[in-house]
Computed example of a mutant assay.
Amino acid sequence: MRFKCQIKNVNLFAKFCASLASLGQIAWCRLNDEDVQFTIVPDKGSQVWSVLKIETVFDIESYILQSASEKNTINLEVPIQALSRALRSAYGATSTQIRLTKKDNVPMLSLTIITNTFSSGNNAVAVPAAATEGAVPDEFDFNDDFAAPSMTPANRGGPRERETIITQDIPVKVLSMEVVERIHQPRTQEPDVNIYLPPLAQVKTISERFTRLAIATSKSSSSTSPRLELSANMHGSLKISLKTDALNITSRWTGLTNPELDPAQFQDGLEGVRNHPSTKMKELAGPNGENEAGWSKVRIDAKDWSRVLSVGRVSARVIACFINDGGLVMYVYLPNDENGSEDESCLTVSLGSLTCDP
């Protein structure tokens, strides 16, 4: 079993892991020859199912993966918060490598981070060659944000480039195929409304303001999370509402975009588009979209919703799919490179009462 690769897009990978870390402590990571999958299925709260194309964050030419399973599949249980903290050390690094290794018989995801800095001869610390020859970089304590750096010897006198190597080790658990076969993505019906969300930072600010007001005016325990009502229609409108004994407030966005359905995705083509629930909801909403029958509504836990909105740090392109009185599925699209690409990876977040495949 072997995994080793250069991380080419450290910033995106770090933001991605930070978003997952806000939703759970443990992630299931599946590596194979085609893609990389991260999944979080907590006992309570939102589920995350993400599929990253290898080239989205890794250097495809250095991607080495070997195992006895089909497609060289390796399944790992990863403490995602520890991985997120370790990746912070790689911001601005010259090179970052990730590999699966073992220390003291414990499987590890090991990050080797190389940075180059310039220093003057007066400030450089000279390290005898005997002290560094064959030395192993300091290991990572995942309770700390940063590991102590291991540095190359410094030249005496004159400005010089100094290479710093940081190694961070994250303990993981290798999962058997029998264990992961019991993990299934929620099965959802066709959505009633599909809509591009406004900037999630904006949505998060308003949602948290509503939540604070609800807690401040509630007679129950402050530890009880209020529930927000989210609703949208196929005429580009989205609403967030909060109704309690003391409050009845709503924030509304208009002029948003509803994605067009692709007839090629349906077995019966245009007929499938015409019979789709979202097409019928658009007709029910009327020409101006104000008919309440054309709005799809879901009620979600406010604190859980706030955590979900942290995915906004990863991408500004998010589609929300509303299943009336059922659940909400968010698709967060990640471009393969900094210049954007039509071929994208996707992070899927499921909220609400969704059933799982058997």
Rank of each mutant, 00 (worst) to 15 (best):
A129K: 12
Q185P: 02
E190M: 05
K173V: 12
Q185W: 01
A129R: 12
G157Q: 10
T167G: 08
I170Y: 03
P137F: 04
E139Q: 13
A147K: 03
D169R: 01
V136D: 04
A129P: 07
R162E: 07
L175D: 01
I114F: 08
S110M: 10
P128H: 13
V180I: 13
F140G: 15
D145R: 07
F142D: 15
P149F: 00
E133L: 13
A129Y: 10
E181N: 11
T164V: 14
S120C: 05
V125L: 06
R162I: 15
N116A: 13
R156N: 14
S150F: 12
R162S: 11
R182E: 09
E163I: 15
G121T: 07
T152F: 10
M151V: 15
Q168L: 11
P171G: 02
E139K: 12
R162D: 06
I165P: 03
E181Q: 14
L109Y: 02
G121K: 03
V127Q: 06
L111G: 08
I113Q: 00
P149M: 00
Q185L: 05
S150M: 09
S150K: 06
E139C: 11
F140L: 10
E181V: 11
D138C: 14
K173G: 09
M177E: 14
F146T: 14
M177K: 13
R182N: 10
Q185I: 09
L109F: 03
D144H: 15
M177Y: 08
A131Q: 05
P149R: 01
M177S: 15
V127E: 01
E139G: 11
D144C: 15
T164C: 07
A135N: 01
N122R: 10
R187N: 12
V125M: 00
P137C: 04
S119C: 11
T112C: 11
R187W: 03
L111F: 13
V174Q: 04
A124Q: 01
T132S: 09
E190L: 10
P159S: 13
N155W: 05
R182K: 10
A147L: 00
S119T: 14
P159G: 13
P137A: 05
G134S: 02
D169N: 13
E161I: 14
E139I: 15
R182P: 05
D145E: 11
T132Q: 06
V174G: 03
V127C: 03
